[in-house]
């Protein structure tokens, strides 16, 4: 009798635990959030991340070339840096550039380097949609998706320590070759293989929360993806993004769940169209 009571109590406790855990849908996020761990990150870890990011950013710029439009570039920097201030990585200086390609895409390199293509900007109708794209890329950096995908083992739990351990050697040829190989691998992820589907969906979720926190209509981001799906899915413009990202349908469905769960469609937040049209005239 006593045994059965004990078993019942344990079962009840497990049921209670499972209920609370499953209600907490963030645990279904693919990777454990780094901000939930207290692992110390040193300044040199961040410097190593930025150094790596600069190498990767130079390759992104080498592949697509920067779009020379000072007004538009300053504008996306204002929006991007403002959004980044709502993120959990104040140690990073985020920087934004427009890539001169009709391809619909955006990229993020560790260390805060973010790129949006001219093709994407041509699809964007307002500042809220632009904020969604930039917040998605910011999330890749704050959640350290590429760093984790590269799976570099550092001296401690911090995935950034891996960069420091590789770059710590400074000028030696071995270290330089190791860095180059690592940047090659990151380039393959960005241009060919893509990140894990779960990482892309996580970035969409974080982006929705970030743009809402900043005061933009969060549903606008979903509408942008719907617009691209309807007008450009299967065309040359979405060729790369379709191989590196989950389908628009999957992304839209996942976003709809968050919008519904967080009541985001009930918020009367703004799209900010006039200012967008004033600055983005490509």
């Amino acid at each position: 009798m006593k045994n059965s009571k004990v078993i019942m109590l344990i079962c009840a406790s497990l049921f209670f635990l499972c209920g609370t855990v499953w209600a907490d849908d963030t645990v279904t996020e693919f990777r454990k959030r780094s901000s939930d761990r207290a692992t110390e990150i040193s300044e040199s870890d961040i410097e190593a991340e930025i150094q790596f990011g600069e190498e990767l950013a130079a390759r992104i710029l080498g592949r697509f070339r920067a779009y020379d439009n000072e007004k538009a570039t300053r504008y996306i920097n204002l929006i991007g840096k403002g959004l980044a201030s709502y993120s959990n990585r104040p140690e990073i200086e985020f920087r934004f550039a427009i890539l001169n390609t009709d391809s619909i895409n955006a990229f993020a390199a560790p260390g805060g380097f973010i790129f949006i293509t001219k093709g994407t900007l041509e699809m964007v109708e307002n500042e809220a949609q632009l904020a969604g794209v930039l917040a998605h890329e910011i999330a890749h950096i704050t959640e350290k998706h590429i760093v984790k995908e590269l799976n570099i083992k550092g001296g401690d739990e911090s995935p950034l320590a891996g960069f420091a351990s590789i770059l710590g050697g400074g000028t030696s040829e071995t270290m330089r070759v190791a860095l180059t190989q690592l940047v090659d691998k990151a380039g393959e992820i960005l241009f060919e293989k893509g990140l894990k589907k779960e990482d892309e969906l996580t970035s969409d979720k974080v982006a929705l929360m970030t743009v809402t926190n900043a005061g933009y209509d969060p549903v606008a981001y979903k509408r942008l993806l719907q617009g691209i799906k309807e007008k450009e899915e299967g065309t040359e413009k979405t060729k790369i993004v379709s191989t590196t990202h989950p389908s628009y349908e999957d992304r839209i469905k996942a976003m709809e769940k968050i919008i519904s769960r967080e009541w985001l469609n009930e918020l009367k937040y703004l799209l900010v169209k006039e200012r967008f049209d004033e600055y983005i005239n490509l």
Partner: peptide
């Protein structure tokens, strides 16, 4: 890199030269 990716460090320097502080960006939004 071994794959022969093109690089553009000059464009990177331009990207890094844009100075906007956090207060300015937050106020703009």
């Amino acid at each position: 890199g071994e794959k022969g990716f093109a690089v553009d460090f000059d464009a990177l320097e331009v990207m890094k030269s844009i100075e906007i502080n956090e207060d300015e960006a937050v106020t703009f939004i």
